[in-house]
Design a protein around this nucleic acid. Structure first.
Length: 839
RNA sequence: GCGCGAGUGGCGGAAUUGGUAUACGCGUUCGACUUAAAAUCGAAUGGGGAAACCUGUGCGGGUUCAAGUCCCGCCUCGCGCACCA
């Protein structure tokens, strides 16, 4: 009898698969199509890691399962190779990023094959292939033409270590998500994509796709929609003589705040825009309680309105704020700071004159960079007012504003004609009142920022724009795409915010496509997310050199049916690519409004010690080592899948692989026993176990309960192993067919050893027969007053009175009922009978 | 602080829907095979108890014939967002 040796079996089948077309997806097939997309890897020098093993094993299980069910499956793979890690790796090892990428992708391809992934390699590419990024650049030009790509000089997040600008989404807790260095602010002229135009659609589109609530919620929160009003506050024009002092305090009567300003309605005034401070608020109902205003220190009006007396103090404060890091500014438990500008504004509801302060708790990046402060009903304003003795006026009753700000709804007070209204209602009424008077408009505000799309690094897609002194920014003509990255000797980033490309004069110097005069190329490159924005579409038509994909093929393949990826991409790649796709849809370039019909996120595999795997902790497990250690790919695949539900973060367990290897060995050994015996008729009990297992595995796979599916296979094997002599060939073939998606090599091999000429991949998924799911007898648990007291075995078709009689006849039941007449008997068919007695 | 999720044996984790808690795997113990070890096979394995039985799913209450599951109030951990007006 031959022993199970994965290092013999697995290469044999991997070779067979690479020479066959079993895994090739067919364009325009009559079979129903199914696209299983897994996020493509970044080809780093260290190859596939544990997360990849999990993700691609799951993808492969689904692909194989769907194929067995008659689907025309597309399981594609590519490489997301632009970006910092390769560039840093190349700099360190003094080889070009192009060569590093070639080596790394070749290595990864070997690893994919060693895992036994049933990928359609005919459709593969790297985002760094000029034939691919030609279309990435082409799509950028579509954004440009539509006015959604623009240049702007703004304070952006700058990573001083990577020496490049970053998008908002790439900053996690004030640090660059890749290198974890602290991020700074830097003024730079940047290319931006107007993702904020799609804020609403990014939220609403989620209604028509199947995403887990966690992922949808995270995206909704990231977009951060708030409904409210934008309200104009007029800057009091007269020069103020009395700077704000600590005597202007909360302890004073509110009447002391009354002003002698012209009480005529504001709408009758001719108000110039630069005499206004616009604020955004979600609580227009509290406007009568706005007792001061706060501007962000960076607010453009600060210089203009600050009085002579306050110039020094304001200047000192602004310099102090500038000296703070982003992290410091984000500390929420920091004590509030701020200074008065000496200027005043008019509260449009009360017509009262209120002081204007600056403070760094107001952020320039959100809303208008200015707020109306309502200390009675906002915690931050309350804290600020308390510290600086500013008046606190209650306008919504229900709390105790001498102690804390009151945030909930209540009855309006101190609000003129609106007194007595409920605050929620008053919010609408007051907004309308302000709108009628021409001092407000309804406004929806988003946290989402436009996408900073420029990177000052070499290893990315050049932005296909030419700058001409006369014509301005001119798109590179489509026929000249791709704008290829020039080969260079020095691609180290620079400190000055210029891309290394700017030093390659021969490449930078060009002529304007419009006027033909000398011009310069844009030297910034695209972010590493650019290729992954649309890569899935390229799988549908990977080699087309006329269009990014044939519209007919786009139509056939439609949406990605299932997209598997990391939770960490929810507010990065996943959000970006949805935006990108929605734009393409608006341009009529893709047939569906959303790219992914369903999304699932796999959990992280932690080290066995429960910590994150990391090089510095020395607890990284390399999947290739598991495969090569003698356990093989099938055991590694089972091990990582059996560990826990696929979406759960869970520690790695080397013993789980050993257990799975043992399981596979037992399957192997049982097959050796059965194949040498003459064929026998199926045993009734085993047949029922077989059909129960088919149902279990099928149900589990449909629900993506992969770990319990494997447990079900193990249970079935345990049943078969108890009676090896009774096991029929059919019993075993079903086991192999159910096992095939999980452990394809051994299943293929043993299926062949059983004498089958066809490949197990050509067999249909087993179907179960309802008739075999029930037994002639069933076991019913017997309870007395809800406590288990025994079991009875009765015929499946037994009537309830007979079951009750049998239950009552148990000695143990009689003992606990004390021979009393039961008050009640509850019978749950086929499961449990509960006898209720008093006492 | 806000949003989401989770707390079950020594460990990873099972448990349609309120219906026999701990499937499956690991580990441990005992036994078989072996000169021996490994591997393999068999048995046992939540806690207490000799047993009957009692007890047990983060904590405290509740609903129910019956609660890991439902309700109320807490605690802890993980993830995401965060001075977002």
């Amino acid at each position: 009898m031959k022993r199970y040796n994965p290092s013999e079996v697995e290469p044999k089948w991997q070779k067979i698969w690479s020479n066959s077309s079993t895994h090739t997806a067919e364009d325009f097939s009559d079979r129903p199509k199914f696209t299983i997309l897994t996020e493509f890897p970044y080809p780093s020098g260290t190859g596939l890691h544990m997360g990849h093993l999990r993700e691609y094993t799951l993808g492969d299980i689904i692909a194989r399962y769907k194929r067995a069910n008659g689907f025309n499956v597309l399981f594609p793979m590519g490489y997301d190779a632009f970006g910092l890690p390769t560039e840093n790796f190349a700099i360190k090892n003094k080889i070009s990023p192009q060569i590093a990428t070639k080596q790394n992708t070749a290595n990864m391809r070997r690893q994919f094959d060693a895992m036994g992934c049933s990928i359609d390699w005919n459709r593969s590419f790297s985002t760094t292939d000029p034939e691919f990024y030609r279309w990435t650049q082409w799509m950028f030009l579509q954004f440009y033409r539509a006015g959604l790509a623009y240049q702007d000089e703004i304070a952006i997040n700058w990573c001083p270590f990577c020496k490049t600008g970053l998008a908002n989404e790439e900053v996690i807790n004030g640090r660059h998500e890749r290198c974890e260095n602290l991020v700074e602010k830097k003024m730079l002229k940047q290319w931006m994509l107007r993702i904020t135009d799609y804020a609403e659609r990014l939220i609403d589109g989620l209604e028509n796709v199947d995403y887990p609530a966690r992922i949808a919620d995270q995206q909704i929160n990231w977009v951060g929609r708030s409904e409210g009003a934008e309200i104009d506050f007029v800057i009091a024009s007269e020069a103020t003589t009395a700077p704000v002092s600590s005597e202007t305090g909360a302890g004073q009567e509110q009447s002391s705040q009354k002003t002698t300003l012209d009480p005529s309605p504001l709408s009758e005034k001719v108000v110039r825009d630069d005499n206004l401070i616009k604020v955004f608020t979600t609580r227009p109902d509290t406007i009568f309680g706005a007792t001061f205003m706060v501007l962000a220190p960076e607010h453009p009006l600060v210089q203009k309105i600050t009085t002579l007396e306050q110039k020094d103090e304001v200047g000192t404060y602004i310099r102090a704020v500038e000296g703070k890091s982003e992290i410091e500014r984000q500390e929420t438990d920091r004590e509030k700071t701020g200074v008065p500008t000496g200027a005043y504004a008019i509260n449009p509801a009360t017509n009262e004159k209120i002081p204007i302060w600056i403070a760094d708790y107001v952020l320039m990046g959100y809303g208008t960079g200015a707020i109306m402060a309502v200390p009675a009903h906002d915690e931050r304003d309350y804290e600020f007012a308390t510290k600086f003795n500013l008046p606190i006026t209650e306008v919504v009753s229900g709390g105790d504003i001498t102690k804390t700000a009151y945030l909930d709804e209540g009855t309006m007070v101190n609000s003129g004609e609106f007194n007595g209204l409920n605050s929620t209602e008053a919010s609408k009424t007051i907004t309308n009142w302000l709108i009628e008077r021409g001092v407000a408009k309804r406004k929806t505000q988003y946290k989402l920022r436009d996408w900073v799309y420029s990177r000052q690094r070499y290893w990315g897609e050049p932005i296909p724009i030419i700058h001409c002194d006369k014509c301005g920014a001119v798109p590179v003509p489509e026929k000249d795409l791709p704008v290829e990255l020039p080969a260079v000797e020095h691609y180290e980033p620079t400190d000055d915010g210029e891309s290394p490309l700017s030093r390659i004069e021969s490449w930078v110097k060009t002529t304007c496509p419009k006027c033909g005069k000398p011009a310069k190329r844009e030297t910034d490159t695209m972010p590493n997310w650019a290729g992954s924005n649309w890569y899935y579409l390229r799988y549908y038509d990977a080699h087309n050199d006329k269009v990014f994909a044939d519209p007919e093929k786009l139509k056939y393949w439609d949406m990605v049916d299932l997209y598997l990826g990391g939770m960490e991409h929810t507010t990065l790649h996943l959000l970006y690519s949805r935006f990108h796709h929605q734009f393409l849809y608006d341009q009529g370039l893709v047939p569906t409004p959303e790219p992914y019909a369903a999304r699932r996120g796999q959990g992280i595999i932690l080290a066995a010690d429960g910590r994150k795997m990391s090089k510095s902790l020395g607890n990284v497990v390399d999947p290739t080592e598991i495969i090569n250690s003698g356990y093989g790919a099938d055991a590694a695949r089972l091990g990582v899948t059996f560990l826990a539900p696929y979406d759960q973060t869970t520690p790695w367990s080397p013993e789980a692989v050993a257990g799975c290897y043992r399981f596979l060995t037992r399957v192997w050994n049982l097959t050796q026993q059965v194949k040498e015996k003459p064929a026998i008729k199926a045993d009734d009990e085993l047949l029922r176990a077989e059909h129960r297992t088919i149902k279990k595995i099928t149900d589990d796979l449909d629900k993506m309960n992969f770990n319990t599916a494997i447990a079900g296979l193990m249970e079935y094997l345990n049943v078969l192993s108890k009676n090896p002599a009774k096991v029929s060939r059919a019993n075993l073939e079903t086991l192999l067919e159910l096992l095939a998606p999980f452990a394809p090599h051994i299943a293929s091999e043993l299926y062949e050893q059983l004498g089958n000429q066809n490949s197990i991949e050509t067999t249909d998924w087993p179907r179960y027969d309802e008739n075999y799911l029930t037994d002639s007898q069933m076991t019913i648990a017997v309870q007395v007053n809800g406590k288990l007291r025994g079991e009875i075995t009765v015929d499946t078709d037994a009537a309830q009175p007979d079951i009750e009689r049998a239950a009552l006849a148990l000695d143990n039941v009689a003992k606990f009922t004390n021979d009393e007449i039961p008050a009640k008997i509850i019978y749950v068919p086929e499961k449990i009978i509960n006898i209720v007695v008093k006492s």
